[in-house]
Design a protein around this nucleic acid. Structure first.
Length: 565
RNA sequence: UGGGGGAUCGUCUAGUGGUAGGACGUCAGACUCUGGAUCUGACUACCUAGGUUCGAAUCCUAGUCCCCCAGCCA
């Protein structure tokens, strides 16, 4: 994966290349992906993963660490740790032996804090949370010093040791950096470094009752690991002076460079952990792996491939401006990937019975079908054909509109890999008027590959043989949200914008027999319809498919345009 | 009304003083035993106003708009 020397593709890679050239970090490139284990990874994280691991992989000797930023025991747990690891691996990245936890550094972090106190750069504050807030000032007014700011080094050392020893209740004291309460950058107004939290940590148990904050733990963890480029998102931009202050003040072994980029936003969905958690907890979706979610687990269950997600992440670029990428772009990459790889099959979602009046009763032909026209090496398969078939309801119109080329009374179409047929009769339900069965005749001369096969008809439709077809359930997914940019909807909660039709369960679908026992996770193109992925709910004779994405549908566009006038 | 960032086709993104390019999308056409795929063509952009310059998306000045920050979250 070591890239040939080429122009850096984004501003961060340009910085890395420049630093390499100037030997800023001794020729090393060490990045890290630092998730907090308090939620599942989503495609926004994938952008960061591809960036951090990508940069490491592109540079000789480069490496990317996986580090859990587990400094807040109240919200973190092993379930998240495990899911994050499996997702990073699934995406195709390898941290080798560089798996770390901020909690690995708690003792060292504590010693750095003692060092800071001794240098007079940190103090124990005994104000309440409310008081600290009040003393902080506002965006336009400076804060004022805490009365505890002038405590002696000895007293601070004593108090901090007793905080650690568990002598005080939660909230009684905090350790603060002594910087500048009048700083125009609020992050520099004596930020909290440690707080007392009598909560067991999922890794360190009850060893600690004080925990470092992100602003303190993150830069030091980076420095301890020898990170060269600490890449994070835009909202941390004005934490950078604090990042640098902590590294310098703690006399850390090296000084990683924090670089910020714009996080990924996608249309028609939500990307914040808080909102995703809300959907999961409220039961609006079936879980973190609900195929409607932009979580990696959800996308995977939906049928997305790691390759498609990586290609997407590479193509959206890395920059500093806020951006909202269209879901259509993500869909483009999964179509592109699956078009090359997914075997074709025939499946009928909404079956309409079709009888070939002139086809011999009881006869079954095994017709040859290509598995993937994009890839001849994928070979051929046999598909049974007989007198009674199912076709897609929407492939027949009793009163066909202009430009509808499919079946209609008197019309001819080709049955994919089979014969040209002509519709000679329509059977309707007496009461409802609903079409329940079609009668057609087939032309034996037109069998695919046969002598009369060259005849052109306007349309080819898919079908399954009624007797051999398998029953299946198909889950059709649509956008999670009805609007592209929920942020633009003034005063409306995202929960009000949920698409009530984001999931449509279609039962009684008929699929070709080759799909018997389709393994969970296997992906197919149902010809003329879309890409589908066998759901884990499949099994013991039951078939369930998730629609990953529909094929591009130019007829749907024509019809929509016709309806608009 | 403080501080930190950012503005280029509908969307994302290149371009760093010398022809504003790519991708997605959209529209039109070709081809097709998937109305898929593929192929062609078209579409549309430098936030505004001044200035410097032979020449400005790029440099300067003044504005405008958008995002982030007042957790003992990350």
């Amino acid at each position: 994966m070591l890239g040939a020397p080429s122009a850096p593709s984004d501003f961060i890679r340009a910085i890395v290349a420049q630093d390499l050239k100037s030997n800023k970090h001794g020729g090393r490139v060490v990045t890290r992906f630092p998730p907090e284990p308090n939620g599942y990874l989503h495609i926004g994280h994938a952008k960061s993963i591809c960036l951090n691991f990508g940069i490491a992989n592109e540079n000789p000797g480069g490496i990317c660490h996986l580090r859990f930023d587990d400094t807040n025991p109240s919200t973190e747990n092993v379930e998240y740790v495990e899911s994050i690891q499996s997702d990073v691996r699934w995406l195709g990245f390898d941290w080798r032996d560089r798996l770390f936890h901020a909690s690995d550094y708690f003792e060292r972090l504590y010693q750095f804090a003692v060092h800071l106190i001794k240098k007079g750069k940190a103090y124990v504050d005994s104000l309440s949370a409310d008081e600290i807030r009040a003393y902080r000032g506002t965006l336009t007014e400076p804060g004022k010093d805490s009365p505890y700011r002038t405590r002696s080094v000895e007293e601070n050392l004593d108090l901090f040791a007793r905080m650690r020893a568990g002598e005080f209740p939660d909230g009684a004291h905090v350790l603060r950096a002594k910087i500048d309460m009048a700083s125009p950058n609020i992050n520099m107004r004596d930020p909290v470094l440690y707080r007392i939290r009598r909560v067991p940590h999922y890794r360190t148990g009850d060893t600690w009752c004080i925990y470092p904050t992100y602003d303190y733990a993150h830069p030091l963890s980076d420095a301890i690991e020898g990170i060269t480029h600490s890449i994070c998102t835009l909202e941390f931009e004005d934490h950078r002076p604090l990042y640098d202050w902590v590294v310098e003040g703690g006399d850390a072994p090296c000084h990683p460079q924090q670089i910020e980029f714009a996080r990924l936003n996608l249309t028609h969905t939500v990307m914040s952990k808080r909102k995703l958690l809300q959907l999961v907890e409220q039961g609006q979706v079936v879980g973190w792996d609900d195929p409607r979610l932009p979580t990696l687990k959800g996308l995977r269950r939906r049928g997305y491939t790691p390759e498609a997600i990586r290609a997407f992440c590479e193509h959206i670029g890395v920059a500093k401006r806020d951006a909202v990428v269209e879901m259509a772009l993500l869909e483009h990459f999964i179509r592109e990937d699956l078009n090359k790889r997914a075997p074709r099959v025939m499946g009928v979602l909404r079956p309409l019975r079709l009888v070939l009046d002139n086809y011999p009763e009881g006869q079954v032909e095994e017709l040859e079908a290509v598995n993937n026209p994009e890839d001849p090496s994928m070979g051929l398969r046999k598909v049974p054909f007989s007198r009674v078939l199912y076709i897609e309801r929407e492939d027949f119109r009793e009163d066909p509109p202009k430009q509808f080329f499919r079946l209609a009374p008197g019309r001819e179409v080709r049955l994919r890999y089979a014969y040209i047929i002509q519709c000679v009769g329509v059977v309707k339900d007496q009461r409802t008027g609903e079409v329940v069965e079609l009668h057609c005749t087939y032309d034996p001369e037109t069998r695919s590959g046969g002598s009369g096969a060259a005849r052109k008809v306007k349309s080819t439709i898919h079908w399954v043989s009624a007797k051999q077809a398998l029953d299946a359930e198909v889950r059709l997914y649509d956008h999670l949200l009805i609007t592209a940019n929920p942020g633009e909807e003034e005063g409306r909660e995202f929960t009000e914008l949920l698409n009530p039709n984001s999931l449509e369960v279609v039962t009684g679908c008929k699929v070709e027999p080759s799909l018997a026992g389709a393994a969970s996770g296997s992906r197919y193109q149902f010809e003329r319809q879309g890409y589908f992925c066998a759901d884990p709910d499949s099994g013991s004779g039951k078939l369930v498919f998730n629609r990953t994405v529909a094929l591009r549908d130019s007829w749907a566009k024509i019809e929509k345009a016709q309806q608009l006038g």
